[in-house]
Lab assay of single mutants.
Amino acid sequence: MKGKVVSYLAAKKYGFIQGDDGESYFLHFSELLDKKDEGKLVKGSMVHFDPTPTPKGLAAKAISLPLE
């Protein structure tokens, strides 16, 4: 699924993505496929991810940034 980063707290390594389906997904650095892309996780960045339901809500897994 595609989505847009709505927040990312680099110090805490987490944030949120708004998916194309309108839902909010929890984003964690550990799910970023290329850790070098962390600096690109800023508000408004477009990402691809696997939407995954968890006991705490919806989460983004296997997060990647589109090729530039």
Rank of each mutant, 00 (worst) to 15 (best):
E23T: 07
G3W: 02
L67F: 12
V47M: 03
Y14I: 06
S64Y: 14
S7D: 07
K40F: 09
Y8F: 04
L33P: 02
E31F: 10
D50V: 15
A60S: 03
F29T: 06
F49R: 02
E31S: 08
T52F: 15
G3R: 01
P55F: 09
I17L: 05
S64W: 15
A10C: 12
Q18C: 13
E23P: 03
A60V: 02
L65P: 04
F16I: 07
L65E: 03
G15Y: 03
K35F: 08
K13D: 02
L27K: 00
F16S: 04
Y8M: 05
L41T: 02
V42D: 05
A59G: 05
G39W: 14
I17A: 04
L65Y: 05
F26E: 03
V6D: 06
T54E: 05
V47R: 00
I17Q: 00
A10M: 11
Y25G: 00
E68Q: 13
S24C: 15
Q18W: 11
M46I: 15
L41D: 01
D37M: 10
M46P: 11
L9C: 15
D20C: 14
D34I: 07
F49Q: 01
A62P: 02
V47N: 01
A60H: 01
K40R: 14
I63D: 02
I17Y: 00
T52W: 15
L27T: 02
P53C: 13
S7M: 15
L41P: 01
L32D: 00
K2D: 09
A11Y: 11
M46F: 10
K12M: 10
L9I: 14
L58Y: 08
K2P: 05
F16T: 06
K13N: 05
P51K: 06
L27A: 05
M1I: 10
L65R: 05
E31K: 05
Y25V: 02
S30E: 09
M46R: 15
L32R: 00
A59H: 10
A60G: 04
Y8C: 04
V47D: 01
E23G: 08
G3D: 00
S30L: 09
A59D: 03
K56F: 12
L32Y: 02
P55G: 09
F29D: 03
K12V: 08
D50Y: 15
M46E: 12
Y8L: 08
G19S: 04
E68N: 12
L33Q: 09
L33W: 05
G22R: 05
S24T: 15
F16R: 06
M46Y: 12
L67G: 13
H48K: 12
F26Q: 03
L9E: 12
L9P: 02
K35A: 10
